[in-house]
């Protein structure tokens, strides 16, 4: 019988085929889906995040690991849902109004999924009202806002204000990121957190959920 350590290593090395095989093998041996997730897949992805922060891994390695993790997650997800196991939290993520760049958003989404979050991708050019409506519809815990340009990052402020105006601001946490965005800007517009990259976004999301 393989160990969870081996599954973690396969996530880290991005071995999609082996992750799928091992996940299936654990299921066949009666392991609980939540245990496979918590002991194998997520810890593996956590190491990937640390390696990314330490500049041992770059985006190619991180994405390869994320795809490997998804191979296992695809097997577990229906079982987790059937047994009513909840994700760590639900995150709605999108690029703000006027901005259609999606590379950063997609990387953050991949890492959040790898961190055990359920991610709902709102797409690009999402208006403040759309964010508010989607957050209500999906019952998310966190809203992630992305912007690449100084000309569009101001839409982050509008989005925060839209949640305020709607009266639903205190029901969700808002985190922001993107090339020109900073911690200071997050504070200025009343967001709850800023993450400088995809790996940091996972840590910030965990922190925000812990702070709820």
């Amino acid at each position: 019988m393989a160990s969870y350590s081996e599954l973690q290593q396969c996530v880290i090395s991005g071995d999609k085929t082996r992750v799928k095989e091992l996940t299936q093998a654990f299921l066949d041996n009666g392991k609980l889906p939540k245990e496979i997730l918590d002991e194998g897949l997520i810890p593996g992805m956590a190491v990937v995040g640390k390696k990314f922060e330490a500049c041992e891994f770059f985006i190619p390695e991180m994405l390869l690991s994320a795809r490997a993790l998804n191979a296992g997650l695809d097997l577990l997800k229906p079982l987790l849902e059937a047994s009513d196991v909840k994700p760590i939290a639900k995150v709605l993520i999108g690029t703000v109004q006027g901005d259609i760049h999606d590379i950063g958003k997609n990387l953050v989404s991949a890492m959040l999924r790898g961190g055990g979050f359920e991610v709902i991708d709102a797409g690009v050019g999402v208006s403040p009202d759309q964010f508010v409506e989607l957050a209500k519809e999906t019952g998310v815990d966190i809203v992630g806002l992305s912007a690449l340009l100084t000309t569009t990052m101001t839409a982050m402020k509008d989005t925060v204000q839209a949640f305020e105006s709607d009266g639903s601001r205190n029901k969700i946490k808002i985190m922001i990121g993107g090339a020109p965005v900073t911690t200071k800007y997050a504070e200025e517009i009343g967001a709850d957190g800023y993450a400088r990259n995809a790996s940091a976004a996972v840590e910030m999301a965990k922190k925000l959920i812990g702070a709820r």
């Binding site: 500049c55 770059f58 985006i59 190619p60 390695e61 090339a179 400088r196």
Partner: peptide, 12 residues
């Protein structure tokens, strides 16, 4: 480059 790192490893 990305904002605070290269997208790929410098050796690659």
């Amino acid at each position: 480059g990305n904002q605070d790192s290269l997208p790929i490893h410098p050796q690659k």
